[in-house]
Design a protein around this nucleic acid. Structure first.
Length: 400
DNA sequence: AACAGGGGCAACCGCTTGCCG
DNA sequence: TCGGCAAGCGGTTGCCCCTGT
């Protein structure tokens, strides 16, 4: 029995012989594959078009990278999978030369087991219940979030964990619902006192007082309150080395058309220095994928701020100009609400500010990142693109 | 040496999506 | 708007090979 698409044909199944490969390669090289259903006929193969397509895509394509996955590739897979779930094709797009099938097989045969061995649920990337039990209580200090409601919550913590704590959320309800994985969980954000600094997003997979990921790097100036561990430093620097606000983010689904950045309530808990202007610099920002970069966390055992090892490359990508036209991405609205009661006033950052600092911050000798610009661009395209004008508020909204 | 079990991987199945008439 | 077709995609299957007994 062949594919339903070619059930009437006499087609061969099973492994491909070298002769078949050669025929297919020769035909594709000479004629391309405008229509896969006609390929086997013209190439002299007793296969259906679907089979030819798969063989080409997964094995014969000249640009394929064969061989074992590198550590970096592995981490990339883990990082992207955390947010996207089993969307292998999307994940594979970020691994040049790798196919979705390859990524999927690698995940199922290798990574999945590693995560389980590390006490992580490979589906949700959360700690497995047993691990949680073991780790619970070790964190302490951090503000507990009992909600567990699926919204990714950030907690801004202006140095001290006391006043001005500004919880905020990242959520993409539609997508979260669409994924067969738990939506992003909790995030801690520690705003650096240093205006030129970035913000540390220490990721808690589930309840942020239960984080057991990698510890903050030694010498890291912005203490991870609650003893929470691994995270990524997000540097939202602008040219003015402006303040890095933290408030609630709600990355909504939908289409985007216009870009603006608003900061509501610049004072109070909003900025680390109290007068900072968030005149930055986050234009093409963001969906779950982007959020993922901000939250990429090292699975226990992967060491340090794992998943962030692209820093070496990406440090070179600092201050990348993202232009709407260039990337084909509709600009994005980014609103930041000030925390606490001090949310008076509003500042709308000129939408022309499109510079995105995707730098990998290095603090205290520890590296962190990782903003994958391609991923980011794609994310925005996927998340924001194609929509009607004027509803930017819908797709990217910050809420408290 | 023979066998069993498990892991890895290529290929298939079936559903979804997008395009076109 | 609808139906047909092709391509895309994720889940699953089955074969082959390696390793341990």
């Amino acid at each position: 029995m062949g594919h339903h698409c070619c059930s009437k044909q006499k087609v061969k199944r099973g492994l491909w012989s070298p002769e078949e490969d050669e025929k297919l390669v020769r035909y594709i090289s000479e004629h391309g594959h405008s229509c896969w259903s006609s390929v086997p006929k013209h190439a002299g193969l007793q296969r259906c078009g679907k089979s030819c397509r798969l063989r080409w895509i997964n094995y014969l394509r000249p640009d394929l990278k064969r061989g074992t996955f590198s550590e970096q590739e592995e981490r990339t897979i883990i990082d992207v999978h955390r947010i996207l779930g089993n969307r292998w094709a999307q994940i594979a797009k970020h691994l040049p030369g790798r196919t979705d099938n390859e990524v999927k097989n690698f995940w199922n045969s290798c990574i999945k087991k590693k995560l389980i061995a590390q006490g992580l649920d490979p589906k949700t990337h959360n700690l497995l219940p047993a691990s949680k039990t073991l780790l619970h209580g070790g964190g302490g200090g951090g503000a507990a979030n009992p909600s567990g409601n699926g919204l990714a919550q950030f907690q801004s913590n202006n140095g001290a964990a006391a006043a001005g704590t500004t919880p905020f959320t990242i959520s993409s309800p539609a997508k979260a619902a669409a994924y067969d994985v738990a939506p992003p969980a909790l995030y801690d954000v520690v705003l650096p006192a240093n205006p030129a600094g970035g913000m540390l997003m220490a990721h808690d997979h589930h309840h942020h007082h239960q984080v057991a990921a990698a510890a903050a790097p030694v010498g890291y100036p912005y203490a991870d309150h609650g003893g929470n561990g691994g995270g990524v430093l997000m540097s939202f620097r602008d040219q003015n080395a402006g303040v890095h606000g933290a408030a609630s983010m709600d990355f909504m689904n939908g289409s985007s058309s216009s870009s603006s950045m608003e900061q509501l309530g610049g004072g109070g808990g909003m900025s680390s220095n109290g007068n900072g202007s968030f005149s930055a610099s986050m234009a093409a920002f963001m969906d779950e994928e982007a959020a993922m970069w901000a939250t990429a966390v090292a699975p226990p055992g992967m060491g340090g701020l794992a998943g962030m090892d692209q820093v070496a490359q990406q440090q070179q990508q600092q201050q990348v100009l993202v232009q709407d036209a260039a990337v084909g991405v509709a600009p994005t609205t980014l609103m930041m609400h000030g925390g606490g009661a001090a949310t008076a006033g509003a500042m709308v950052v000129d939408k022309s500010v499109e510079m995105v600092d995707v730098s990998s911050a290095v603090y205290g000798g520890a590296t962190a990142t990782a903003f994958d610009l391609d991923l980011m661009v794609e994310s925005c395209g996927m998340f924001c693109g194609g929509g009607g004008a004027g509803n930017a508020m819908e797709q990217l909204q910050w809420d408290c």
